[in-house]
Design a protein around this nucleic acid. Structure first.
Length: 481
RNA sequence: CGGGACGUGGCGCAGCCUGGUAGCGCACCUGCUUUGGGAGCAGGGGGUCGCGAGUUCAAAUCUCGCCGUCCCGACCA
């Protein structure tokens, strides 16, 4: 590999590595507006795969899609105090349009609870109208102070679900169904990103939420990424926007709400979870090209090799594999190898006269670099098996890496905060539940509580790592994106 | 908003200190030869140096002001 074209080292300069991978793999680039990015076709193709996986699960759990507008009167947003407190600093306002100053400024949505709940009032009259299970695919704008491609952009794409229910229990169950059956399933089985499932501490909750459920993933630089969130909103929004219905007993009632979202941030998560010094490593289930066939062309056998490549591509397509034959004449094979590795294509097939003569194809997997020769007749089947194996291996490698970087011992407050402040990974430890301790860890290490895990493990008895009082729960700390 | 760096063809940079109207690598275009790990040779196109003002015979270069970008923190999916 030539030094002039090598990527920055992932371990030594992670932010530079990340930016270069996103740019050179042609996922996205920045635009004239600070923090707003252009998502390029290859990056958008990944988003479309992910979008479809999420959308299928959202529908499978009984939801319908609809669409609310980008703009809403600023006063509608302002009615909900929690949203104002939470989002005011990052809301963009339209104050002028059609050549004149507007009577009332319009807010560009930072999220849609306000507009949607101000509308739901007309849609919810009876308990028979419940539950309302709606989702929208949309763009939102949050004026972030420090944007980063995919991870925190001024405008981003996401889905936001907004549901209304008769009972609190039903709403909580909804929020958890989304967390597990939609988000965790997609993120783990499709994106191959292992996640911790948990609740947010009070201080980290969504504005207006009674409970925020979250998926937290560990990136290869030791920081945590919130992969998706699902909120139980109680009756707060219903009360603010005066959404009432006649209940089964004939009296007025306020519905219970949830909202939940996952965004283009996940694309950044895939880069930071699986990428290596050669570039992207895409899990096969979201790879726009799962297999790339690179024909090795020499004048004498050109036609035969191309024909064999086309035949193999047909066989792979018949097996529902997304395949591309890279027959560009302007580049030599070595260039293509590097380019497709940078772009993270899970499996590469090399096919030249040498292979044809031997009745084999050369197959290389991106995750391990392992190279093997496979009889042509078995190539399509073998590629399918290999893709499954790459998918599973990426997940296992990421899970092992997370475990390796998770500290569970009680070595002492100073050691733990030191571990956290250099973003070495996760700390899982008992917590007394008091925000004083949460704040102290943050000021000592700049790490925050990522979640209070809701997995199978019972909260271990013990003393709060910070103050030593009896713990009420286990908490997971880390530096966060 | 605080700290740091930087704005020069598409991208990455040099030139600035010691003013004399722009150069390198990659990319791009044409042709030929190549093709199993980022090809070679030959030819070619493209910028007036972030913006504004000033000094000067002359400004990418010196002075002043402004704007913008990136990185590190506080806010955040």
């Amino acid at each position: 590999m030539c030094a002039a074209t090598a990527l920055p080292s992932q371990s030594a300069e992670f932010p530079a590595w990340y930016g270069e991978v996103v740019r050179r793999a042609e996922l996205a680039e920045s635009s004239p507006v600070r923090g707003a990015m252009v998502i390029k076709p290859y990056g958008y193709a990944i988003w479309e795969m992910l979008q479809r996986e999420l959308d299928d699960r959202i529908k499978a759990t009984g939801h319908e899609n609809l669409y609310f507008p980008l703009l809403q009167p600023a006063s509608v947003l302002a009615r909900e105090g929690a949203l104002v407190d939470g989002f005011a600093p990052e809301v963009a306002l339209v104050t002028e349009a059609g050549g004149r100053k507007l009577e009332e400024p319009l807010a560009v949505r930072p999220t849609s609870e306000a507009l949607i709940w101000s509308t739901y009032g007309r849609w919810i009259q009876s308990y028979r109208d419940l539950p309302l299970l709606y989702n929208q695919w949309a763009n939102v704008v949050r004026w972030e102070l420090r944007p980063r491609l995919f991870l925190r952009t001024t405008e981003f794409l996401w889905q936001e679900g907004h549901t209304a229910h008769e009972t609190a229990a039903e709403a909580v169950a909804e929020a958890l169904t989304i967390l597990h059956d939609v988000y965790a399933d997609t993120v783990e089985s499709v994106l191959a990103m292992p996640v911790l499932r948990g609740r947010k501490s009070r201080g980290e909750r969504f504005p207006g939420a009674e409970d925020t459920y979250t998926l937290e993933a560990l990136m290869r630089d030791g920081k945590a990424l919130q992969a998706a969130t699902s909120h139980y909103l109680g009756q707060g929004f219903a009360r603010t926007y005066d959404v009432r219905y006649t209940g089964r007993d004939g009296t007025d009632a306020y519905p219970y709400a949830t909202s939940w979202g996952a965004s283009t941030r996940l694309v950044g998560g895939v880069v930071m979870t699986h990428g290596d010094d050669r570039g992207l490593r895409l899990p096969p289930r979201i790879a726009p090209h799962q297999v790339v066939i690179v024909p090795i062309l020499r004048e004498a056998d050109r036609a035969g090799v191309l024909q064999a490549a086309a035949a193999l591509a047909d066989a792979l397509r018949a097996a529902a594999v997304r395949v591309r034959v890279d027959d560009r004449p302007e580049h030599r094979p070595g260039f293509k190898f590097n380019e497709w590795e940078l772009k993270g294509v899970p499996v590469r097939v090399e096919l030249g006269a040498r292979d044809l003569a031997a009745g084999v194809v050369t197959v290389v997997r991106r995750d391990t670099g392992e190279k093997s020769e496979i009889p042509v007749a078995r190539a399509a089947a073998a590629a399918g098996e290999l893709l499954d194996d790459v998918q599973a291996s990426l997940f296992e490698a990421a899970r092992d890496e997370r475990e390796r970087r998770t500290v569970r011992d009680r070595s002492g407050y100073v050691e733990l905060t030191e571990y956290l402040s250099r973003a070495a990974g996760l700390v899982e430890a008992p917590w007394c539940g008091r925000s004083e301790c949460e704040a102290r860890v943050k000021s000592d290490s700049s790490a925050t509580i990522r979640c209070l895990p809701i997995d199978e493990r019972p909260a271990p008895p013990g003393a709060c790592i910070c103050c030593g009082r009896p713990a009420v729960t286990t908490a997971v700390w880390a530096q966060a994106y």
